[in-house]
Amino acid sequence: MNGKNVRPPARTLGTPIRPDLSRGSSEADGVNIIEAQPLPRLWLHITLAFAVPASDPGRVALAAATFIAKLHALDRLLRLTVEPDRCSATDDEALLVFVPRRWGALEAERLDEIKPQVRDLASAAFGGAEVKTVEVVKEHRA
């Protein structure tokens, strides 16, 4: 065989891993293995303040249903659903909590983008209420 035609292997084997560099601590590991942190869960919190306690349960139910329907239509990809365990209400304040179907980087961007529209929707739906806050709450895994 002509030595000039002998091609090196596509990949060289490299040097063996020293025991003190094994288990993810080698220079090559640091460069070629990508470590990822879990993304936090996302919640959309809407706080409503009522100057006068709502006296007509029918109107409140209708306003809530209208608001949720419009919120769904605002961004169908988010697939927001109510998280009843996290919602709360007192005489003069209510906290509505929605959760998207996924909680990734795209969902975080979308939630931030729709916040002003959510505020407008809530103001329109709950006529007698002041929308105190609309915020995206991030919760890291324990």
Binding site: A10, R11, T12, L13, G14, T15, I17, L21, S22, R23, G24, S26, E27, A28, D29, V31, N32, I33
Partner: peptide, 15 residues
């Protein structure tokens, strides 16, 4: 369960 990149660092590391 575990992956190791075989040194030296390069564009075609073995794993």
């Amino acid at each position: 369960l575990e992956s190791q990149a075989v040194p030296p660092v390069g564009v075609n590391n073995l794993y």
